[in-house]
Design a protein around this nucleic acid. Structure first.
Length: 316
DNA sequence: ATTACCTTAAGCTTGCTCAA
DNA sequence: TTGAGCAAGCTTAAGGTAAT
C-alpha cells in the first residue's frame, strides 16, 4: 500500500473548492508552483487528472466531483480533531470503557455507573474485568482504562485518586446463632468461615488481627470474590468478612445480617488509578468523574449511622 | 500582442534518519 | 546527544498554453 500524505488531502480540498491552482495556493499560503507540484502528486496518487484545462480555467473530472464532498468532510473532521481537548463530541462517541475492579463492584454498581457515564456519553458501554494479582502492566499497556480498588502495585507513573475509605464488616444469615449474643473474638472464631482470595496478599487482615490475640478463624471455603462470599453465607451457616458498601447493598436481599467484627480492622483506602497517557482525555476524565461521583453517593460509599437487625449487630 | 494561469527547472531550506 | 547525509518540499525564474 502506498503511503498516504495527508497534506495532499488538504491541497485537494483547496483545489476542489477553488477550482484554481493559484487560488488554492493562496488559500494554503503556498506559491502557485508549489500548489502545481501538489496537484501533480495528487494526480499520480489517484491516477486521475482531477482538474483539466478548459480554456483559461480548470474543471474537475468526474472522479474529482465524486471526491469533493467526502474530502471536505474529512478535512472538517480533522480540523475539529486537532482542536485543544480533541474537539470530540462526547454525545456521539462510541466507546467501551474497561474497568478492573472487585467482582462485587461490577455486579452491584455496574448499572449505576453506566447510567452516570451515559448522561455524558450516551453511546458508551462498560466492561468490568476481575482483579488480577499478577498484572500490574494493564494500565500502562492500555488494556484497561481504570483500576478501582485497593491498588498496591500500580506502576510508578500511574496516577491515583482516593474514592472512599472502606471498612470490612461481618455478615451471617439472618437468625444465625452468632448474632444471638455479643460477637466476641472467641465466638466469632468458633464459627465456620468463608474467606476471599486476596489480590497480592496471603491472609485477610481479620486473620492477622485474630492471630495477634490468639484466635483463628475456621476457614472451610475460599472463594474468589466478596460477592461469592456473600452468596456462600446466604446459602449456608458460614460467616463472611466483606467490604461494607457491598454488604450494605446486597445483604438484605440475600437474607443476611451485617455485624461489626470483634477486631478493629484498619479502614482501607479505595482508589481509582489511571495512566497519565489518558489524564487529559475527555472521555477518560468523564469516566473518572462518574466513578468519583458514584463513590460519594450514599449507595456506593461507606455507611453512615445505620442500625442492623440482631443483637450486638450494630454498625456505628 | 496581451493577459491569465499552469508547468518545468534549478537551487535553497527544512527535517528526518542513522551512525558515532 | 550531535552532526552528516539525504530526501522532500519550497521559492524564484522562465517558459508554455489558451482566451481575448
Amino acid at each position: 500500500m502506498n503511503s498516504l500524505d495527508l497534506n495532499l488531502l488538504a491541497a485537494l480540498d483547496a483545489l476542489l473548492t477553488t477550482g484554481s491552482v493559484a487560488a488554492a495556493a493562496q488559500r494554503m499560503h503556498l506559491s502557485a508552483p508549489a500548489m502545481s507540484h501538489k496537484l501533480a502528486r495528487i494526480r499520480e496518487a489517484l491516477d486521475d487528472p482531477i482538474l483539466v484545462r478548459a480554456g483559461q480555467k480548470l474543471i474537475p473530472t468526474p472522479r474529482a466531483e465524486e471526491m469533493r464532498a467526502p474530502v471536505r468532510r474529512l478535512i472538517s473532521e480533522a480540523f475539529v480533531l486537532m482542536q485543544p481537548g480533541g474537539g470530540l463530541d462526547l454525545t456521539r462517541m462510541q466507546r467501551e470503557f474497561i474497568v478492573r475492579a472487585p467482582e462485587g463492584m461490577g455486579i452491584v454498581y455496574g448499572a449505576a455507573l453506566l447510567a452516570e457515564i451515559q448522561r455524558e456519553i450516551p453511546l458508551a458501554t462498560l466492561r468490568f474485568i476481575p482483579e488480577s494479582d499478577s498484572d500490574s502492566m494493564a494500565l500502562r499497556e492500555g488494556r484497561i482504562d481504570l483500576d478501582v480498588g485497593i491498588v498496591r502495585d500500580a506502576g510508578p507513573e500511574v496516577k491515583t485518586a482516593p474514592l472512599y475509605e472502606q471498612r470490612i464488616v461481618g455478615v451471617a444469615k439472618a437468625g444465625h446463632r452468632l448474632l444471638a449474643a455479643r460477637v466476641t473474638p472467641k465466638r466469632f472464631s468458633a464459627e465456620q468461615h468463608v474467606s476471599i482470595a486476596q489480590r497480592g496478599r496471603n491472609k485477610e487482615a481479620v486473620d492477622v488481627l485474630l492471630a495477634d490475640i490468639g484466635c483463628a478463624r475456621r476457614i472451610v471455603l475460599t472463594v474468589p470474590s466478596a460477592y461469592g462470599a456473600l452468596m456462600a453465607a446466604a446459602r449456608s451457616s458460614l460467616i463472611a468478612c466483606v467490604p461494607e458498601p457491598l454488604a450494605r447493598t446486597v445483604a438484605s436481599g440475600l437474607g443476611l445480617e451485617i455485624f461489626k467484627l470483634p477486631v478493629a480492622i484498619p479502614v482501607e483506602q479505595v482508589v481509582q488509578a489511571w495512566h497519565p497517557r489518558v489524564d487529559a482525555e475527555p472521555a477518560s476524565q468523564c469516566l473518572r468523574r462518574c466513578v468519583a461521583s458514584l463513590s460519594r453517593s450514599a449507595t456506593f460509599g461507606p455507611l453512615g449511622q445505620r442500625v442492623v437487625a440482631g443483637h450486638n449487630a450494630l454498625l456505628s
